[in-house]
Design a binder for these strands. Structure first.
Lengths: 139, 139
DNA sequence: TTGCGTGCAAAGGTTTTGCATGGCA
DNA sequence: TGCCATGCAAAACCTTTGCACGCAA
């Protein structure tokens, strides 16, 4: 009677491979599905969704919802201590910025004390526009 | 040959009434549609979507995408575009909390100045655990 | 009358779910 | 042998779009 155990399967491995190879961008499920099919190792979308959910829970993958139209986006972040800092996501160039800033950690304290809410940095993403894109826009 | 003129219709008025009455919360299209139907003044969803789009363009209504599940959320903000606030979302009970706190607005300034990143509060959601769920867990 | 607004239904897309089968340990 | 994982298809949703009709000005 095992519990909470995970099996290793071909599908799981292929998916993770793809995510790691594309860790610098974000992808969505239809894209992943199309790619894996083209590679000759198709994986059902249901499986992809189910597995991504688990990876998100485990903190290995980040889920983004930029807007309602394109659907959710996913990006591999690995387990290099990303749970301890916040992330900025540029909605223009999709760049992911990691910031480890003590000042920002103060907002954790503030919100916990004044709003009774404990923020989970590993699930929280700030959306906005990075300096590069802002510069490019002001031309 | 008029152009860019807007007609006043019963549907338009009802929708705006509802939005203003609920300016303190979020709503989505299915909710609005259900409410208007229950009131005996049903409005087609296509109409609601089309009108909301215009209101968003005019800056009277803000559109949020909290997550992929619930679809887009809308909120009336009127002419005073200063009603920007952040959102906290409890990952346990899915409750959505609005906080309008000047201290939190400092985050914007801090990140802009120290990290060269301009946050868009309408797209940013803090995920974590609300006080109710935290209490329920510590039992 | 003009042309914007509306309703209906169909279509499009993403994501979830039920169920039987397959496969790791 | 257990139990988890998968695939398939159906279903559930949200949202958009085409088209004919209604209605404000």
């Amino acid at each position: 009677m095992k519990r909470d155990s995970e099996y290793n399967t071909r599908q799981k491995e292929k998916l993770l491979d793809y995510l790691i190879e594309n860790k610098d961008k974000h992808t969505n499920v239809p894209t992943i599905s199309a790619y894996l099919s083209a590679e000759g190792t198709p994986v059902g979308v249901a499986t992809i969704y189910r597995r991504l959910d688990k990876l998100v829970d485990q903190g290995l993958v980040r889920k983004y919802v930029i807007d309602g139209k394109t659907g959710a986006c996913y990006q591999y972040i690995g387990d290099n201590g990303c749970s301890e800092h916040f992330h900025l996501k540029c909605v223009r160039c999709d760049k992911l910025i990691h910031i480890n800033c003590s000042h920002l950690m103060e907002i954790n304290d503030h919100i916990r004390e004044h709003h009774g809410f404990v923020i989970d940095p590993s699930k929280t993403v700030f959306y906005g526009i990075c300096s590069d894109c802002a510069e490019a826009e002001n031309k």
